[in-house]
Design a protein around this nucleic acid. Structure first.
Lengths: 214, 214
DNA sequence: CCAAAATTCTATAGACCTATTGATTAGTTT
DNA sequence: AAACTAATCAATAGGTCTATAGAATTTTGG
């Protein structure tokens, strides 16, 4: 049995294993992102990182576990960053901007892992999804708390459902995130600004109250 | 060779073939929706409609063609409905509401096909995606034209990019659409209303101009 | 430079899956 | 009811994929 958890105890900084495991994760993320979980083969992933199919199992116990790790990898740092954003003492608008920067920026950073998390995580067994589910709930609750804060400060309309808006914001971000991955020439900061403007103020001209209700 | 295009020339109203072909499309949509294109097997689809795996090829030439037909099926009527909405002479807000009703309502109607279109169409070859691509562009252009109309009427802010907002609206709709499919107890009309409010006016309280810009 | 550990390779068993073929049953028409 | 057509089935060829096992190679530490 392969004890892939073994690391060289006398690692220089970080073990060779850990370094190459990261390469494996990135390769898996790229291939899963391109072909989907079931469409990707272990052979694809292995050749992406320059090793043979069988050797991949030195780094993963199974294909499904590879997907699990990619999803967790793509989501983990991202949620913890969300936490620190929410903890800060900033006006509502600034927080939203930070959140959008973090969310959309993640796609440009380790684009593939986060995309895989969004598109492929449901193919994991319930058991394997536990941690991911927890992270997802955490994230949505954090976003809802920011909105609730906005309501209490009188900045955000009382009529909005924090749950609904949180979901909608996540939807917009994931949709644009997918575009950012697909089209590298798309400008990240422009996208962030437009999302922010749209989420905060909608599309209706504020001054004109042309409510010609039929 | 199976001439699956044959219909009984003396069909009663609509041929038995056409009727069961629809059953096949719905079964394929359901299974593709649950397991994804590569995760689904022809055996799954066949047993969903109560026939054996091999018999499925009486209705489809290949698994990939089944996916193509499901995607087109899910998108076609939907785009044509969008056309008639855009042609109507209605105020901007009413049009947006109609569009949201149509888009989100579609998920409740033939929920699976539209979901499959969104999630799985990229696994089709470029050739097979041609028609779908065209429909997608048509849809987005129609939505952009509605926004442009709104700008010209002074209802929509001049600063918004119609392209960006169109994409964002589609993102929100697809995100909520997926929720509507996943959670049947979610109220359709409530979702439509909240989406509309959010898209039109954003989350910020209109009266309060608390722009404490740092 | 040698021995132990880490990493990669080759080869393959065992499943499973698509698509085809020819036989078989059900349905219709005359 | 015979003749014809439509719909389904059973069986399988041919291919691909995951995961494993043991051999071979590389790296590391003394």
């Amino acid at each position: 049995m392969i004890t892939s958890a073994n690391k060289n105890t006398l690692s220089p900084e970080v073990s060779k294993y850990a370094r190459k495991k990261l390469v494996a994760l990135e390769a898996a993320a790229k291939i899963f992102g391109e072909k989907g979980f079931h469409g990707a083969t272990t052979s694809d992933i292995a050749s992406e990182m320059g090793i043979k199919q069988g050797s991949l199992y030195y780094y993963f116990n199974s294909k499904e576990q590879a997907l699990q790790e990619v999803c967790e990898f793509g989501f983990e740092t991202y949620v913890s960053r969300m936490k620190s954003i929410c903890a800060k003492n900033q006006p509502f608008e600034a927080k939203i901007l930070s959140i959008l920067s973090s969310h959309l920026g993640s796609y440009r950073g380790k684009s593939n892992a986060l995309k895989v998390h969004n598109d492929q995580r449901l193919y994991l067994s319930v058991e394997r999804r536990k941690k991911i589910k927890k992270l997802g709930s955490q994230y949505r609750e954090l976003l809802e708390s920011v909105l609730q804060e906005g309501i209490e400060q009188g900045v955000v309309k009382q009529s909005v459902s924090t749950h609904f808006v949180a979901y909608s914001i996540i939807g917009i971000c994931n949709s644009w995130g997918a575009n950012l991955v697909r089209e590298p020439e798309l400008d990240l900061y422009d996208t962030i600004d437009q999302c922010s403007e749209f989420i905060l103020y909608g599309v209706i001209e504020a001054s004109n109250e042309s409510s010609n209700n039929t």
